[in-house]
Design a binder for these strands. Sequence first.
DNA 1: TACTAAACGAGACGGTACGTCGCGTCTTATT
DNA 2: AATAAGACGCGACGTACCGTCTCGTTTAGTA
Lengths: 192, 192, 192, 192
Amino acid sequence: MTAEPKPGSRSARVRAAVLKAAGELLMAGGLTAATVDAINARSGVSKATIYKHWPNRTCVAIDAFAEHMARTVPLPDTGSARGDLTEQLRLVCAFHASPAGAVFAQLLAGATADPQAGRLLRERFLAGRREAIRVLWRRALARGEVRAEVDVEVAIDLLFGPVIYRLVSGVAPIGPEQAGAIAEAALAGLGR
Amino acid sequence: MTAEPKPGSRSARVRAAVLKAAGELLMAGGLTAATVDAINARSGVSKATIYKHWPNRTCVAIDAFAEHMARTVPLPDTGSARGDLTEQLRLVCAFHASPAGAVFAQLLAGATADPQAGRLLRERFLAGRREAIRVLWRRALARGEVRAEVDVEVAIDLLFGPVIYRLVSGVAPIGPEQAGAIAEAALAGLGR
Amino acid sequence: MTAEPKPGSRSARVRAAVLKAAGELLMAGGLTAATVDAINARSGVSKATIYKHWPNRTCVAIDAFAEHMARTVPLPDTGSARGDLTEQLRLVCAFHASPAGAVFAQLLAGATADPQAGRLLRERFLAGRREAIRVLWRRALARGEVRAEVDVEVAIDLLFGPVIYRLVSGVAPIGPEQAGAIAEAALAGLGR
Amino acid sequence: MTAEPKPGSRSARVRAAVLKAAGELLMAGGLTAATVDAINARSGVSKATIYKHWPNRTCVAIDAFAEHMARTVPLPDTGSARGDLTEQLRLVCAFHASPAGAVFAQLLAGATADPQAGRLLRERFLAGRREAIRVLWRRALARGEVRAEVDVEVAIDLLFGPVIYRLVSGVAPIGPEQAGAIAEAALAGLGR
DNA sequence: TACTAAACGAGACGGTACGTCGCGTCTTATT
DNA sequence: AATAAGACGCGACGTACCGTCTCGTTTAGTA
């Protein structure tokens, strides 16, 4: 959750054990399976200790998932900036379509009711994704491939929004081919 | 949930009482407060009966919310098709920014884990919204204001996605002014 | 705890199951073993239900022990009233010296911190014992075998006090032979 | 608990700090409040150190209470041996009726489950009391005021028993006036 | 109008997880 | 070496809400 303790320390080992167990449970049975009792049983770390490190179950799960996913979606570099954006979107869609996508949706859901979890989730996931796009966007701007009048944040919303929307709305997540269509439409615009 | 019983019948009264109580609880304290026990206490309808009408709590909540929201977001007609789309987006954003928006996010969340609830939610909310946009889109197409190459469904994703994304991600929901920016960007496209 | 529900009812069966399990655990491992979780596991009655019937673990244990002990120490009738008193004392001592005695001491201990448990304990055990002695005392008074100037309650304290004292103080409980000495001393008096 | 270390030494200071803190907590909130963590917090002595000096919390409490009570009930000398016994009983009763009495009952309770605590308690409290009575009893014997046939230990049980009984049974502790009645009855005997 | 079958109210129940507390042990760094 | 500081495992606590169930009572439709 908060600042990491010095590596190798007791706390660090505990933390790692919890995240490992939670991550495994998460991937095996989703958020439902990642019970604090289950994490305790699997990791050997007591419930009290878990609650000393994280405020609640959802936060443990988010951290565990983040750890598990660390650097899953790298920044592409296709030469063309528009190609980069498209590729990035494709990668994110692929992630969402994978089993991990379902877990992510549950985390998103779990965070809805809990401000702490919400903050942690944004910090661990969304912030990084948005930042990644910001980088690509700047690159594209420099090459003159995108419209300067468009706010970066709006652009990010426009690109990620559809992906998340499809994920949480329970309609099938966007597949790789649709990802291309989304990117194309976003770049070319709906109007004429 | 299922087909309505004949109005005025015992079942219908029960159904109405439950939805009323659930709706009030929902608006007052969010999904968390809309406990089955609380609904029972407030409506006088016994838990067993509630479970005879709905498969689980989430479904009750969705139905109640739908009832409560019935026809909140009407179809606009501004003369210009692009104006219609923009206006529709603005309306949806306003809805999300209202207190009800938070509840909606929780319902979306609750539906993540439960297929039945997901289906019901799509049926009660998302389907209507998408259909509304389809109508506007056809209108816009007829007037030649939008690109025919773009798939309607993609267009819908592009328009709604950002809105939902901002809602569930816990970043502040999109305000009315940003709604315009989103619509503009979606229509004009990001690229040049 | 409180008024019994109609026999054969669901509540009555639950109550009986809990008391049976608790009693067995109590006799097998003392108050320490009579955990609510253990009672739940052994009886099949859920914790929530147990807590609906009793305010806390100690009260369950007291009730269980009372049930288990129902009518262990009967009223004697030796012909002589003084003999009756002596005999009653001997019986009570024997009870305390038995394994059950240790459990009783633990219940007494557990009741120290909890007013509800204290009340229940007095109601279930001490009241009955004191009443029994009151009966014997009246009988003895009628036969002129005891001093009328002595208050019954004082007499009861004088007879039972030593027994309980030895039990809780952890000195070996009074054996049957010492019981006689106590009774003799109480009746004849210490002074001359 | 064990042999005192040389006064003024580090151990002695630690010991004193613990007993002081524990005693204060004990008087303020009873045995319940005298948590090891609380003692640690209040005394500044670490838990590990506390456990190096005492085998468990109950023993700390007993020692603390003993320290706190040191010499509360002195040996009376009224001239008459029977008067001495009566007076002694009255003093003990007064002690039990004071707030400290409740704490003492809890200690008695706590000692029930733990042999070490039981031993310590007897050593710190009961032994002294019994010895005091033995002295008085010998004095009374020498003056011919009590019956020589009665065993001293039985006499002690007869005098103290009622007091402790009333204390632990949760019935109101014996007040000073009743103390007299008890003493009178014990000396004169119940029978005629 | 009486009768029966279904629906209902009331609420107890089993189950699962929650988050908390206190004990007594253990580690690490300090003094 | 003895401490302070405090993390940790353990095991129990009492609570919450879920969804199921049992048991009478009410209510509609039918006979």
